[in-house]
Structures are given as C-alpha cells and as structure tokens.
Design a protein around this nucleic acid. Structure first.
Length: 749
RNA sequence: GGGCUUGUAGCUCAGUUGGUCAGAGCGUUCGGUUUACAUCCGAAAGGUCCCUGGUUCGAGCCCAGGCAGGCCCACCA
C-alpha cells in the first residue's frame, strides 16, 4: 500500500468497479423490500453546484445505508429541461451568432434547443457520477423524452375530462423582452424612483406613476371609511380626459389606503393585479389598452400603436396642456416588478391562460400532511407547506415559451377566425388574424412555419396529443416546468402500468432543498394523490442551503460561489461529501468552510494508514489470512480492552442506525469519526502495538482487523470511495469475500 | 405588514424529553518523529451559552419582554 491515500488515482478505479458490476441496478425480483428515492432532477444543460453536491451526499448516504441494510434500494436519476432557464441560456448563445428565436419557427427552434441540451446534458451526468452517486442509470429519465411527454399529456387529458382545466383571462407577469409570462416566483421587487403624477378627475385627484394606463380605467376607488370621499361612493363623475369627455363610477373598497397620495385610486383591471381583483369584486369592465406587443391597443384611441413609455410621455404632455396635471412628485421611490434574472421590467397584462382548479387537489394535499401520511423533516417546515397550500390559488400552467411540453390543444381555424398567429415565411415573420392571413397564404404554410399563436379566451379547442386533422392549428404554449416535474415520481417509475411503478411506488423519501417545498413538493403530493390515490412519498427531508464562506447566499455577482469540483479535486469526493454532511443537522442553512473538507481529507488518509499499519504488524507477527479471517470477537480475548472495543463498536452501530433513521446525518458521521480516530487509532492501536505477549498481540490484531472491516461498512455510505478502495485491499489479502463493499451487508449487532 | 428561523470558544457549528452540557473540527500556543499517518502524536490557552425578568431544588435548554442577524410570503396606486 502507498504511504498516502491518493484519491485522484483511487476514485476512478472505484467508479469503474461499480459500473462494471452494475452494482446499483435495482432488481424487482430480489424478494427484498424496496427502498426508493427519486433524485430531484437537475437542469439538463446546467452544471453541478454545491447544492447538488449536498443533495447527492445525503441521498447517496440514505440509499447506500438501506442497500446494506438489506433493502432493494432504488435511486432513480434524471434531468429536467428547466424550461425558461434553459431557453434563455440558449438564446444568449444565439445572440452571439446574431440570431434570436424570432428568426425561427417553433419546430425548428425546438429541434435546435434539443440539440443544444443533448450536447450539454453529458456534463452534469458525468459530474453526478463522479460524486459516487449510486443511482440506477438504467432507469435514467429526461423530462422531454417521449415517455415523460406521454405521461404529462395523459394527465392533462384526464384533468380536462374531470373538469379541472379551464382557460381564463388573468393578469400575468409579462415580459415584452422575452415574450412570455413569468410565474410570481420568478419576479422580484426592485426599488426605483419614478415621477408620481397627481391627475385631476373632475372634482377628485388621483396619484399614479402610470398615467398611460388611465386609458384603461374603469372606475375610481376610495376607502369607504374615508370621510373626505364618502359621499362620492356610488356616484358617477364626469371629467375631461385626454381622449375627450369621460365618465367613471366611484366605488368604495377597503383595499384603498386613505393615507397614500390623495386617497383616491384609479382602477385599471387590465393592467394591475390588485385592480383586477377590485374589478372582480365590483363587476368592473376589463379594458386592455396595452397589447401583447408592448404597444397601445385600439382601445387607447389616438395613442394606438405607441409604445408604452412613448404613450406615457404623450399622455403627460396632453394632461399638462389640458391643465389637469395638479403636480408631479419626482422623488417618489417605489418597488417595481422585475425579472429576477435580468432585472428587466415586467408588465402586468391580461392574457388567456390555461389553469388548474386547485381546490380539490390542495385539500387532499393538506390532509396528507396533517394526517401524517407524509411526514416532513424538520417538522417546522410543515408550517410553510400548510400556509402555502391554504392560500394557493388556481394555478396558471401555461408558458409562452418553446422549450417545454406543448399544451396538447388544437384550434380549428374555421371555428376560430380570430386566432392571432405569427409564422415564418421565407425567413420573415408574418403576423395577423388567421382569417385574414388565409386570404393570402395556405394553411399548410402557416402551420409549418408557425411560431406562436394566441387564442382568444373563448376559443374552441380539442385536446389530444396529435393533430385532429386538416384545418387545425396547435396551441403553442408549453406547460410550466413544475407541471411536469410535479409528476416526476410517476414519470420516472412508469405510471400507470409498469412493473417499476407497481413495485416501487410510493417511494420512501423525498430529499430536497427547503426552498422548493412550495413549488415542487406541494405539486408532487397533489398530482400523486390525484392520479394514484397515494402521496408519492412517505417522508420529506428538507436540507438547508449551503451558504458561501462569508456566510452569505452564494451568487455570481458577489463572486462568492463555491465550486464543488475544486474541493473534489483538491481533497477528494469523500472529503467533500463528509464536509457537507457534517453541517446539516437541523436542515438549516449553513456556511461551508474549507476547513471541514480538509479535516475529512485527513480522515481518509488516517483510515488508510490504520489499515496499512495493521497489515504491517500482521506480517511481522506471521498472522495468516485464514487465522485473521476466521476470528470472531469473543473467541479468545484475554485482554478486556479487546472486548471493550467490540462493545463500543456495537454501540456505535446502534447509534448510527438511530441517527440516520432520524435524518441526523451529522451525528452519525461524527460518531464514526470519533470511534475510528480516537478509540481505534489513538488508543487501541497504540495499546496493541505495545503488547509484549505475542499471543495477546495476535488477538489484538485479529480483533482490530475485524473492527476495521466492520467500520468500513458503517462508514461506507458516508465516504464510499476510500472505504471501497480499502475493502479492495482486504479482498486482495483474502480477508473478506464479497467483491464489493457497496453490496455488502451492514454489520449485525 | 404577515410568517419562519438564528444568536454557544477567534471561525464554522453540535448540545435530541431541563440534572457530569459547557463540547467538536479548524485556528492559536507549547512540546514531540528509533514500526503507520506531519494529511501525524501529546498538552494548553480560550466562552457573562445576545440582554432583562420569570418558572424550578436546578435553565444554552422552558415562559415573557427586549436587542441584533438571516430567510420566505405579500406588496400603497
């Protein structure tokens, strides 16, 4: 054996052993009880970050432990297409070539994206392999492969049949730049200084930062408790507007804050979420003055066709000319919604979208947790889950992006003359109402060059995967990524009729970061119960977030991102894994100092040298392999220390089992670390090596060998590489039988 | 504004139902290498367990209030 444990040489050797033996392929027919984890799928075109590394370390620990405990352990890998994120990455690439997605029709763009992702997918898979993840690669799934798409589509079809799907106008976060909606989760508020305009509406004055939306006003609102305006409620006021004479009703709504501005609010349901809700409460008309192209619509009268900001300028100018601009506060600071990635401004628009009615689903999802069918660790995260579920509103599942699973709906052009389509013809985009376009173009041309389609809210549609025939155009929206990943346990296991599904569903534990409990965990529980009657997992373990060395959240802009690969290279994968594990006690966020990784690199080397020394001494004492191998503790100890070490080992195994079953990984790892280092290395080896009596020394060595072999087993789930490597050394000496430690049974005590 | 969460040695953190619970790793200081490992061994220094009250025979641990962080959700036009 070498003087040091060289992880750079040994790790690839170990990986090859496992791969050659197909060690982690789960066998349905083994007769063993299944234990299943579905890997939260990382972005297929991304690369491994330290959060992924933590996830692998924890899940691999659980899986290896259960596998050794005699379960048929299945860990299913996969990758996610990460709709919006991947598409924007790809579009950045396109931009470098002077292209954009507006240069391509939908199908061509999708194919290009697929090629791009398939080319990049390899990277993260290789990185996961290098971490020693004992996943079953034969069951690997990608969210955009045929099988996934079919499952997602049939779920959608079932939901349509069950009356859970509807199309509706809704105020969505819309980016003109990216031409798509964003979920609320993708929006952040950013402070900005904007002029606050005080505009006269007859006798009343309204403060607003968006005067151009006044064209879409359908009421004025005041707080019913506000004595200043009490008498106006229910009355209609007339005033001169930029588009001529106008009238608006005054309504009372407690949403209005009397202390802000003048205490009078202009209500623009089409362009503000809160206004939209006020509109619903009071039955107001929705008047859309900003179009999907970012320009004013025909409802904006003379401002039609102007871009939003130009219209704003013009409206302000006109208001000033009319003398109804009371004042302008230029120091007003307020939060505006922006895309959290690019910080581009987000417009609120009313658009037709596909929705899921969540009432029945969320009720079942809530019950599953409240009744303990799904247990969440740490327990306090249940509150997050419960609150989110209780407040969950209908879920808008459509996205105006290409990279995803297309909503399987089709529109008849005869029945829907108002479909607004954009298609590529001879390299150029042509847009318009389909009824107009058909006078100039063939439907086939439109269909094959189709880029996007907007169907009015009341459009008639047919739901099915393939085209119903000539005369139909497809929906171009795709599903929200969470719609497909919410079905991930079902997709990966081949719901509804595969053997895997029948054998391994429901899975045992879902392990993921707490920040997606709302977006992902809740959806999986809902879909699982909806489709199968059972939640997809029995327990949820939520790990904390790995923070940077400075204790702050890692971000590219702060430059404090920890690259797990660097630690892997410098200290070894085992050290990285153990370093991450030893900070996860309560599922809290934790800083990740390099010291920890270093400490476990030293530990790897320590174990290596303990074994090396054992072999050296055994040779000196002429101990035969047979003699060592046949030894069992209790056979022939003369020295109480020998038995004491064995008793301590038994205690160790019990405490490790207990800690792991409670997801207390750090406790378990620490216990092994201290047993091996403090007891076996620092105390016991020193004792044995100084024994004068050769018989006692031999017994000590045999006992030591036995204990080390068994320690390797207990440590294996934590530090699979160094333990498997050393196992190979024991195997070579004929001291153990099983070729792979990973497939060895856990010590029975 | 609503909610969750944290405050223990220089740093990163354990401390599970209140009773050897004042700990670990790293760092610091001192001392060690004739049979493993300097990625080592031994030893030491270092804490008002955020503050103030309370419950208790007894409190990092329970309760109340405060101070200071972190995060999530919602956002006043």
């Amino acid at each position: 054996m070498d003087k040091r444990y060289e992880h750079k040489i040994k790790e690839p050797e170990v990986l090859k052993k496992w791969a050659d033996a197909e060690a982690f392929k789960a066998d349905i027919d083994s007769g063993k009880k299944p234990y299943t984890i579905i890997l939260p799928p990382p972005n297929a075109s991304g690369k491994m970050h330290v959060g992924n590394a933590l996830m692998i370390a924890i899940e691999d620990l659980l899986i290896r432990w259960k596998r050794m405990k005699g379960y048929e352990a299945l860990w299913v890998p996969g990758t996610d297409h990460a709709g919006f994120e991947s598409q924007t990455t790809f579009e950045r690439e396109l931009k470098k070539q002077g292209k954009s997605r507006f240069d391509y029709d939908r199908d061509t763009f999708y194919k290009m994206m697929m090629e791009f992702v398939l080319n990049n997918k390899n990277l993260i898979e290789e990185q996961f392999k290098s971490m020693g993840a004992s996943v079953d690669w034969s069951r690997y799934t990608f969210t955009l492969e045929e099988r996934s798409i079919n499952t997602v589509i049939s779920t959608f079809e079932k939901m349509v049949k069950d009356g859970l799907i509807y199309r509706s106008d809704y105020v969505v976060n819309y980016s003109f730049k990216y031409g798509t909606t964003f979920s609320d989760a993708e929006i952040v508020m950013k402070e900005r200084t904007d002029p606050l305009y005080y505009i006269k509406y007859g006798p009343l004055t309204v403060a607003t930062v968006r005067p151009e939306t006044k064209l879409g006003d359908t009421a004025l609102a005041v707080n019913p408790a506000d004595l200043r305006y009490k008498d106006y409620i229910g009355k209609e006021i007339s005033f001169d507007d930029v588009t001529g004479k106008n009238k608006l009703k005054v309504i009372g709504d407690s949403y209005v804050d009397p202390a802000f501005g003048t205490g009078v609010l202009k209500v623009t349901p089409a362009h503000d979420k809160n206004d939209y809700e006020i509109g619903i409460r009071h039955g107001l008309e929705v008047k859309q003055v900003i179009g999907i192209d970012g320009k004013m619509t025909s409802l904006a009268g003379k401002y039609e066709g102007m871009k939003v900001l130009d219209a704003r300028k013009q409206v302000v100018e006109d208001l000033e000319k009319m003398g109804v601009m009371e004042k302008i506060d230029t120091t007003y600071v307020h939060p505006v919604p922006v895309d959290y990635r690019s910080e581009d401004y987000i417009e609120q628009l009313v658009l037709p979208n596909w929705f899921i009615k969540v009432d029945s689903l969320k009720k079942a999802g809530l019950e599953a947790v409240q009744k303990g069918h799904v247990k969440i660790f740490p327990k306090w995260q249940e509150i997050t889950y419960t609150r989110w579920m209780e407040n969950m509103r209908d879920w808008a599942i459509s996205r105006q992006i290409v990279w995803g699973i297309r909503v399987p709906a089709w529109y008849s052009v005869d029945e829907n003359p108002n479909l607004f389509v954009t298609f590529i013809k001879g390299g150029k985009a042509v847009s318009g109402k389909v009824s107009h376009l058909l006078s100039k173009y063939e439907l086939g041309e439109i269909s094959s060059g189709l880029q996007s389609l907007f169907a009015p809210n009341k459009a008639k549609y047919v739901v099915q995967k393939d085209s119903p025939g000539a005369g139909f155009l497809p929906e171009t929206d795709t599903f929200d990524t969470w719609f497909s990943s919410g079905q991930w346990p079902l997709i990966t296991l081949g719901y509804p009729d595969s053997r895997d599904y029948k054998h391994f569903y429901p899975t045992d534990v879902l392990e993921t970061g707490w920040e997606i409990i709302t977006r992902w965990v809740s959806r999986m529980i809902m879909f699982g119960i909806y489709l199968t009657g059972k939640p997809p997992f029995k327990e949820v373990y939520l790990h904390g977030r790995v923070m940077a060395l400075d204790g702050k959240k890692m971000s590219k802009s702060l430059g404090n991102v920890i690259n797990p690969e660097e630690y892997q290279t410098e200290f070894g994968t085992d050290a990285l894994r153990m370093g991450l594990i030893s900070g996860t006690a309560n599922g809290k966020d934790f800083a990740f100092p390099k010291d920890k990784v270093l400490a476990y690199r030293n530990f790897s080397n320590k174990i290596w040298n303990m074994v090396r020394f054992l072999f050296l001494l055994a040779e000196e004492e002429n101990l035969s392999s047979e003699e060592m191998k046949s030894y069992r503790p209790g056979d022939s100890e003369k020295d109480s220390t020998d038995l004491e070490m064995y008793d301590d080992f038994k205690e160790l195994v019990k405490s490790v089992d207990k800690s792991l079953s409670k997801y207390r990984f750090s406790d378990a790892g620490d216990a092994i670390y201290h047993y091996m280092w403090d007891k076996l290395a620092s105390t016991y080896i020193e004792d044995v090596k100084s024994r004068e009596n050769p018989e006692l020394k031999k017994v000590g060595l045999k006992n030591l060998s036995y204990l080390l072999i068994n320690c390797l087993k207990v440590l294996h789930p934590f530090m699979p590489f160094v333990t498997e490597t050393i196992w190979g050394e024991f195997l070579e000496k004929g001291l153990v039988e099983k070729p792979l430690l990973a497939k060895t049974e856990w010590p029975g005590v």
